[in-house]
């Protein structure tokens, strides 16, 4: 039975012309973890085996064609958190390739986070969460975000959140804040135990951060 399935499967694989896919063709796996089975250590770029849970497809297409810096200190793997110097820009793909890559990335999923609302916050609530983002929880110590004047500020040990609302899926953001271990065994971000309401509001707050709002 097993051999039969293998035969059928390999037959299927052989019949698809473009080998295993664009991600493989372009060797993206040399820096990125693309499969959950691969071990977490040793990659020089962020994990992408849950890209379909994490990113918005439009952002992916744009990024792959026109890369921007998300981690100003580089993707730091050094245990002592030594920032990387002279970071090479990310390879950029043609529009066509970028679309194909994005499509394959959107198929990489490891979880099914509970759907949440990403409805914008009222002005008052937004001010309150912003205050908590900066003070109560100190998120801004490690993440760039936008101040009231639309200027970028904040620490750089975590990925920039300046464009989180265009880049990340709301469901994933909520899941990351609730159960980060689903995605990364060992993190550098402190763990928070937010009340469900706070978690919901933080997610919606992060989704309001968009680079169009930079002044």
């Amino acid at each position: 039975m097993k051999t039969l399935t293998t035969l059928i499967l390999s037959g299927l694989l052989l019949s698809t012309p473009a080998s295993a896919g664009v991600l493989e063709d372009k060797n993206c796996g040399s820096c990125h973890r693309l499969k959950a089975e691969e071990t977490e250590k040793g990659f020089t770029g962020p994990d992408l085996h849950y890209a379909g849970n994490k990113f918005q497809p439009e952002w992916l297409k744009h990024f792959l064609n026109n890369p921007e810096v998300i981690r100003p200190a580089g993707f730091v793997t050094d245990p002592g958190f030594l920032p990387k110097t002279d970071l090479p820009p990310h390879i950029s793909s043609s529009k066509e390739d970028a679309n194909a890559l994005a499509q394959e990335l959107m198929d990489l999923k490891i979880s099914a986070p509970t759907p949440v609302t990403s409805e914008p916050l009222s002005k008052g609530l937004r001010a309150r969460i912003k205050y908590q983002f900066e003070r109560t929880f100190g998120c801004i110590s490690c993440h760039q975000s936008l101040n009231l004047a639309g200027k970028i500020r904040g620490g750089i040990s975590g990925p920039s959140l300046v464009n989180a609302g265009n880049r990340l899926q709301a469901d994933w953001v909520a899941d990351w804040l609730k159960a980060p271990e689903t995605y990364t065994a060992k993190r550098r971000m402190p763990r928070y135990k937010m009340e469900p309401d706070t978690l919901d509001q933080f997610t919606r707050f992060l989704m309001t951060l968009k680079k169009e709002n930079i002044k």
Binding site: G138, L148, G155
Partner: peptide, 14 residues
């Protein structure tokens, strides 16, 4: 007021 590098335009202290 906050932890990010402060700006002139930071909101009043609470």
């Amino acid at each position: 007021t906050a932890c990010g590098q402060s700006e002139q335009a930071t909101p009043a202290a609470k």
